[in-house]
């Protein structure tokens, strides 16, 4: 990991010095344990601020699309690179203005799971390969990182960037999964009432801060449907139906586009697994169209293309 950070800094510094890009978007160390912060670097000296670890859980493609018209470089994990692909396909980024510093991803850790394991507030966090050394005021534990991976990372089959200009480490081995959607299957196995109850409980503490939406690279609409006031599509208070309408429709807008990067869950202050909504659509895209989002810039996404053999069996 340390050599990879060194390489990120060197490459970023070089790009800035040679004037090949205006800014490099990456992660910087946070002010508290297990926190990192997206940062834009514009000088060679500042490139020393760049870091990378298992706590870089947000998706930097979300920042890249906001730098329109500028030449930029982005530090990209597997999922970030897939969202950069999606952005290119959806004309949000010009490939010619984009330099991708690819990072073969070791998987990100689930901060809520670690906090729950430790019981108290985390005062220290270090990584040594697959060992996480976590401390609280009265406790220090060594945890096996594989047991504390975020759920999406534990099921990830695209850890290596799919599109890049340079790779800062050896490619990591991709896992083969017998079933990529055990969580969706578990919900599907419930009765209709059971499924409804599952989603009612899932969002019971949602405060509608919209961190999930705002952390999502896909949510770049100039005005989101929940913010529209003429006409107003959905109530803005804490009514449960309005809350669920937001989650349901936001997920639906991500159909065939979501890379399951987990930024929505990473950003949620309440720890709500909003991926329960999007994962079903990802599975449908896989089952119906054999589609995984963001793997290639040469193909249109299924909901963006017409095909005579479209599996439209839901239409009577």
């Amino acid at each position: 990991m340390d050599t990879c950070i060194q390489k990120i800094r060197e490459i970023a510094g070089d790009l800035l010095e040679k004037g090949e890009v205006e800014r490099v978007i990456g992660f910087a160390e946070g002010s508290i344990p297990m926190a990192t912060s997206p940062v834009a670097i514009s000088t060679k000296e500042d490139a020393q601020k760049l870091c990378f670890s298992s706590t870089c859980g947000l998706n930097l493609a979300n920042y890249a699309s906001k730098e329109k018209g500028k030449k930029i470089a982005v530090v990209a994990k597997g999922c970030d690179s897939r969202n950069l692909v999606t952005h290119i396909v959806e004309n949000q980024i010009d490939r010619d203005n984009l330099y991708i510093i690819g990072v073969p991803c070791p998987g990100m850790v689930d901060k809520f799971k670690i906090a729950a394991e430790m019981g108290g507030e985390i005062t220290g966090f270090e990584e040594a390969g697959d060992t996480l050394i976590v401390s609280t005021v009265d406790d220090k534990k060594e945890l096996n990182k594989q047991d504390y991976l975020r759920h999406n990372c534990s099921l990830c089959t695209h850890k290596n960037p799919v599109l890049f200009d340079v790779l800062v480490g050896e490619e990591v081995e991709e896992q083969q999964l017998d079933n990529a959607y055990p969580d969706v299957d578990a919900i599907e196995a419930l009765t209709a009432d059971g499924r409804w109850k599952h989603f009612e409980e899932l969002t019971q503490n949602c405060i509608r801060c919209y961190a999930c939406r705002n952390a999502c690279p896909l949510c770049y609409c100039p005005t989101c449907f929940v913010d529209e006031s003429g006409p107003q599509w959905v109530g803005k208070g804490q009514d449960k139906t309005d809350v669920d309408t937001f989650h349901f429709l936001r997920a639906f807008h991500c159909a065939g586009r979501c890379t399951d990067c987990g930024a929505c869950v990473e950003a949620c202050p309440m720890g709500i697994n909003v991926r329960d909504f999007t994962r079903k659509l990802n599975k449908d895209a896989q089952d119906m169209f054999g589609w995984e989002a963001g793997l290639t810039i040469d193909k249109r996404p299924p909901l963006d293309a017409y095909s005579p053999d479209d599996p439209n069996d839901f239409i009577k």
């Binding site: 969706v184 919900i187 599907e188 209709a192 009432d193 059971g194 499924r195 409804w196 109850k197 599952h198 989603f199 669920d244 349901f248 997920a251 639906f252 159909a255 909504f277 079903k280 659509l281 449908d284 839901f314 239409i315 009577k316």
Partner: peptide, 17 residues
Amino acid sequence: NLLEHMGIEKDRVHFSW
């Protein structure tokens, strides 16, 4: 499909051409 997944019975939602 997503509505059904959330617990809305399949027969309540229909699409037709």
